[in-house]
Amino acid sequence: MSLLAFCEWLAATENSTALRESLFMYPLLESSHVLFLMLFVGLTVILDVRLLGLAFTRVPVSQVIDRVLPWVRWGFAIMVFTGVLLFYAIPVRTYLSVWFRAKMILLVLAAFNIWYFHYRVYPNVAAWDTDTRLPWKARRAGLASLILWAGIIITGRFIAYNWFDCDIQPQPAFVNWFAGCVVPPAE
């Protein structure tokens, strides 16, 4: 079964339809997704500005991470939970959205950045824990995180707009390719 077929099957399920057509559940989910941005991205920004040496520099890096990361994790769990349900409500259009696809790519890059930081940068934290100006590797991870999450917020917000939707043709060839649109051949 292709991913598109899976999304079509998903869209036809009873709960997906109920969620899509619900008067309050869908807006409530979307609002939660936006509100928990304050918790998740907000506290991620706090970690990042510490890595960049822009603020909270008198707190050791390890302490900021130990104290703030549990909240970031909770925030992320809620973002994923509400995000999956939002996808579940509108699977086909979302799957065929250039913005959704761009967001997923940025999410993978953000995950890689986190992995890289935790396994390649953070193990040496003892050497620079209390420094204001951290090693380039650590600052780079903070900067990449800020840029990636900003991109994720922007592309995420744009999913709601239909500029590049498959049913609005003609679109540039790149858009149709990237979105995976099935376009009937021109006459």
Binding site: M38, L39, L43, V45, I46, V68, W71, W149, A150, I153
Partner: peptide
């Protein structure tokens, strides 16, 4: 609107910390 949301994220962090 997207920039408004970026501001919201930073505001969230600054308030919550």
């Amino acid at each position: 609107e997207a920039v408004h949301l970026l501001g919201l994220a930073v505001l969230g962090g600054a308030v919550l910390i």
